[in-house]
Amino acid sequence: MSEGSERWVTEDVLSLDALLQETEDPACGALAVFGGAVRNYNDGRSVSGMRYEAHTAMAARVLREVEEEMLARFDIARARIIHRVGSLKLGEMSVYVVVRAGHRGPAFDAGRWGIDELKRRVPVWKEEFYVEGDSEFVPGVPLKQPPIGDESSFADNNTTKES
């Protein structure tokens, strides 16, 4: 883990209590939480566990940017996202998205947007282990590469603007 990245990407068991405490805000009447957990089936097969891996430095940077974009796009006061990596058992939480806002509408909207962006932009992969003993990597979404001719890095261009 690179220094500071553990705020967004961690090998530790996720603590929802810590995120709720961190985001406490007396001006917020709404709290929306999305949590992703390891499911016991996928695509017709019985799953026994999951191993998550990340490009940690890039994943942490993109998650920080998604949080910042949630705050800019929606009428919310707090946004936090954390993703776990390593080997997880069935039922363990792999990700939390926590949003606090004055009202429930933007809280729900921002949370949904945040997890959708995570799935599209954050370099995390999952290897699914099955009860038969084999494993497969879960198919994903290709990252958008900068266009040919753009010799700069591509720190921010994966962002899409809402209409």
């Binding site: 430095a57 890039m58 940077r61 370099p123 290709p142 958008k144 040919i148 001719g149 890095s153 591509f154």
Partner: peptide, 17 residues
Amino acid sequence: DSIAVAVGDSLVAPSAI
């Protein structure tokens, strides 16, 4: 065609040095 390339913590264009 589905592989992205990163240097440091950022993606880079196919023609980047």
